[in-house]
Design a protein around this nucleic acid. Structure first.
Lengths: 193, 193
DNA sequence: CGCGACGTTGATTTGCCTCAACGATTGTGG
DNA sequence: CCACAATCGTTGAGGCAAATCAACGTCGCG
């Protein structure tokens, strides 16, 4: 499974043989069955993680007991819901679990920092990803405070068609912050048009 | 005004005399009157910017013609609403203008990258700020998709009392994504309790 | 086979928006 | 310096979008 990650990296940046070996030496693969947790709320998280295979979600349970999905992480993406706990070393507020059977590549925080120090091109790459994520997040806030439920859903399927086809509808509703019933009705209306 | 920025930096990281001079050599101060634009939508933005004095907001105009505030940046904070244009070199979707008369320190993107290259401790510091911002953003999304208007407002004043006291109410409403009328009614209710 | 996950539909309620109007304050140009 | 305009906050009336509560069909799985 490391080869998936390797291929991903090689498409983005130039790495020497030694660097790749160094990265591999600190990488661990974790297999998850469907519904299995990668991280449970109240645990401390200490890894950077990349989805080699499968599909993962980050969510939390709100004060009314509802599951709220913060993020989907399909294969070939970093999981970015765990940053808060990773940075603060405090127990996580979020859960991460597998939507499909998955294989996750883990790199311990300290190892990851070592890698970034030793491989400047990796460091730059990671920073550019962080920046992209930040911009995407900002985008999402705009969508959230501006759009109606319908507009949000349209925007979502047009932006993430792959995810939209792959996860249950009620999870999309949870991600958008609307009820599953409302989403169902929106979909019905949309087909009419 | 550079001294405000210098003081800010020195509280956070150790810098040599030369490094400080280097930073100062690429810094420019821009004064803004109340209501003056720092950045207007459709312009390209190429600076990292820090508020030395005053108060600034980042906002956009939605498809219904409403102003939506994405961010407030008080003094001693970086302005982080301009990242998308800065990264992509594309015209900005956002406007930035002064809520109060302000003085903004600007560092051109290329100069800023040079600084980060030459001053590792600055680079690390900037990265940690980016991370904090990212986490705050994530937090905001949670609040947004979970909370009612009332909960959001309570959360806001408790989290940013300084901002809450300083900006007009209708801007807070705009930031939260609720109407000014609703906010007014919430406030009325709150005083009753 | 039976149970749970998923999606849908209906009825009802409600939180928030929109439109409109009005004081209070601030700012500004003649 | 006063008059008038603009900004800000508030209040009321009415309407709508979405939540909630409830029930039901379908499918896949243990």
């Amino acid at each position: 499974m490391f080869d998936v990650f390797q291929k991903y990296l090689e498409e983005k940046i130039k790495l020497t043989e030694q660097n790749l070996e160094l990265i591999q030496s600190v990488s661990v693969i974790k297999k998850l069955r469907k519904h299995q947790y990668l991280l449970q709320a109240d645990d401390v998280w200490q890894y950077n993680s990349f989805v080699c295979k499968g599909f993962v979600r980050t969510y939390y349970v709100d004060n009314k007991g509802q599951e709220r999905i913060l993020n989907f992480s399909p294969e070939n993406y970093w999981i970015c819901g765990d940053k808060a706990s990773l940075a603060s070393k405090k127990p996580s507020k979020y859960n991460i679990d597998a939507i499909d059977a998955s294989e996750i590549l883990l790199i311990r925080k300290t190892d990851f920092e070592m890698l970034c120090k030793k491989i400047p091109v990796l460091n730059d790459f990671i920073n550019s990803i962080s920046q992209e994520n930040f911009i995407a997040m900002q985008e999402r806030i705009c969508v959230n405070i501006t759009f109606t439920a319908e507009e949000q859903y349209t925007n979502f399927i047009q932006k993430f068609p792959a995810i939209a086809n792959r996860v249950p509808k009620h999870m999309i509703a949870s991600y958008l912050g609307i009820s599953a019933e409302t989403l169902s009705r929106l979909r019905k209306q949309a087909t009419k048009k």
